[in-house]
Design a protein around this nucleic acid. Structure first.
Lengths: 195, 195
DNA sequence: CATCTAACTGAACATCTGTTCATTTGAAAA
DNA sequence: TTTTCAAATGAACAGATGTTCAGTTAGATG
């Protein structure tokens, strides 16, 4: 019955999501109209509603799917060994995973304000789940006697902020190769929580 | 000639700026209409144009004045002595200055996208000027042999990110008194750049 | 008191907003 | 070739947008 090949929906669908990420990252959710988005996709505004029930749900889905993927991917990358190896893996993963997804990171980070309350709560939960991964590593390090810090929760926030701030400028800079930035960050993070 | 006392402009003017900071921090520049802002001030939309030539200039002025004040205030707080004292002063200043100005920080940080190109360039220059203060301290510390890091510029960005991320969550948390958060951050920053 | 004017109103403007839906299109399926 | 239907169009909707401006108001000034 349903056409699987030749259908445009499996072309237009991803196009809508990509264009939405790009435009929202660039201009902000509220500043991007459905007509702008449609033009970017090469379609009329009405056609977008074959791919999302409304604008708000489109934003929510973009953020939700990104965060779910971040968490799943980290859980695969996590060596689950000693705290020092795990922290190093976290820093490396975070930088390498987020770099090619700068738009999604930016949207998930900057557009929390534009989520309706229930959507906000759901996204906040996912964001927290990712942070909890890092906090667990820091606490393991304390227990092992490898790390020492005054407050693991604050340290978690500080490290996340440090790494996330990275994506607000790396694009433009380009002065350093990724491997080097990763090494520099590992140096800073490792020393900050060292005993 | 011009009325100085009894005039409302010296009441309404600040009110407009305060309300704009509050609403824009909460909902974003694009999502706040001039009519919403006017209602918050207790005035009709047309009256706002006694205080700003247009919406874009209002945003620019809020960001500009905030950043100029940050830089001036830091230059006064800077002990201009050894690098370690200066870095400690920077961390302390940054947290203490920004905390009671959370809305302004948020706007200056989140609304860069909504500035027209020339305004963006001007604000970016100010932002950079503040970061350069920190970078100079780190380089002084390297020269003194007090600090060691792989790249002062990246370390600057990392520390700024770490401190700025602070304001995205401190409001809600409230678990810790300011003095304690300041001490925790100093511990992290100091160790991260230590030799 | 009468005058003056900064401050504000309220209506108007052209245009844009998200969303809906009857209609058309075109390519795969029969 | 004819049928079928997912996908897209394009017009319409009710209301919101930033901004302008002639007119009103109220309080200090002379």
């Amino acid at each position: 019955m349903a056409r699987k090949q030749g259908s445009h929906s499996d072309i237009t669908g991803p196009k809508v999501r990509e264009a939405a990420l790009r435009l929202i990252a660039r201009h902000g959710y509220a500043a991007v109209s459905m007509r702008q988005l449609a033009a970017e996709v090469g379609v009329q505004a009405g056609a977008l509603y074959n791919y999302t029930p409304d604008k708000q749900t489109l934003l929510y889905d973009l953020m939700h799917d990104h965060l779910v993927d971040v968490i799943e991917s980290f859980d695969k990358a996590d060596p689950k060994s000693d705290a020092n190896s795990r922290l190093r893996a976290f820093v490396s993963f975070h930088i390498r995973y987020h770099l090619p997804r700068a738009d999604a990171v930016f949207v998930a980070y900057m557009e929390l304000r534009n989520l309706e309350p229930e959507n906000f709560a759901a996204i906040e939960k996912l964001r927290r789940a990712y942070e909890d991964r890092l906090e667990a590593i820091l606490r393991q390090g304390e227990a092992e006697g490898a790390f020492a810090m005054q407050d693991a929760r604050v340290a978690t926030r500080a490290i996340i902020g440090m790494l996330t701030g990275f994506f607000t400028w790396y694009r433009q800079e380009g002065r350093l190769p990724l491997e080097e930035v990763e090494a520099i960050y590992w140096d800073l993070v490792g020393k900050a929580v060292a005993r």
